[in-house]
Design a protein around this nucleic acid. Structure first.
Lengths: 153, 153
DNA sequence: CGGGCGGATCACACGGTCGTAGTTTCACGG
DNA sequence: CCGTGAAACTACGACCGTGTGATCCGCCCG
């Protein structure tokens, strides 16, 4: 069953610590959608989509956004984000979020939000690209048997 | 000497707690430029410009940006920010920051930063306006004079 | 010169992160 | 079908940053 990604691998791919992944799962920020933990020894299974969200979260965190804020944005986002993700830009303002498609729309949003405080801007398709690269880079665990899985380097 | 603003008043005007202001001063995020504390009993004196920075910080905080990040951005900004402030947008990316003047420039920045992560936008002139309003709203302490403080109840 | 404003200090809370040791389960080989 | 070992989830404690409240203390101003 190598559907999806193990917790460990997920963490490696998106570049966070395992403890972080664990904490986020426990505190309900994001839990593995293929298989959640049900006690010690069980295995979490993250979907590709999960990884994408994880990577977005990590990116927001790296940008200095508080986890608390990320939670709020995602709560909102989960209801409004379709499958598109590509060529879309995420704009977060405080606890809410919007998706924007092109520059004109961006300017529009910026102007509409005048005086509302800070806008956070993130290009989701870039995140996707980076995630794909990272997946490539982190080999699936070799089946514990085969003499030479012959992945030819 | 009612040059500038006392710590208490500064806090009230920008809408933070006095303890926060104190904490920020002691941890070197921002200290009063007119008169710093030099031991118990002394008085801090904040300039208008200080208030502006305080307000920007508060706005960033409200937007869910980590104080740590704010520290980094300000360290950078202090060297690069002239007196302008009006009709300028502050753009923060991770630890560094840029100032942008119009929509076209904004789009430019957005494109240049593709793949660099998250951008945070803040319209500084709005902050200034809000600060000015707030100052208006918070009267200078009445010279403690007349027998009738008589502000009724 | 005396009272009060406000800075100093200390203890504590809370969220997020991390390390380590413990425990459970899964998958494989026999 | 069972034993076994590694994978990986869990528990627990520690630490750091960011405050907060209480209380002490000293300077300044009227």
């Amino acid at each position: 069953m190598d559907e999806g990604f193990s917790g460990k691998r997920a963490a490696e791919i998106v570049g966070i610590t395992y403890r972080q992944l664990d904490y986020w799962a426990r505190t309900d920020l994001i839990r593995p959608s293929l298989a959640d933990a049900r006690g010690s020894g069980s295995r979490r299974r993250y979907s590709y989509r999960d990884l994408l969200e994880l990577k977005v979260i990590k990116t927001l965190l790296d940008a200095g956004i508080k986890l608390e804020s990320v939670r709020a944005a995602f709560a909102y986002l989960r209801e409004n984000l379709g499958e598109d993700v590509a060529s879309v830009q995420l704009v977060i303002s405080g606890g809410s979020a919007v998706l924007v498609r092109d520059g004109a729309e961006l300017i529009d949003v910026v102007n509409r939000y005048r005086g509302q405080g800070v806008l956070n801007f993130l290009a989701l398709d870039d995140v996707k690209d980076q995630l794909d690269d990272a997946i490539e880079l982190h080999p699936a665990p070799a089946p514990r048997r085969g003499p030479r899985t012959a992945t030819g380097s």
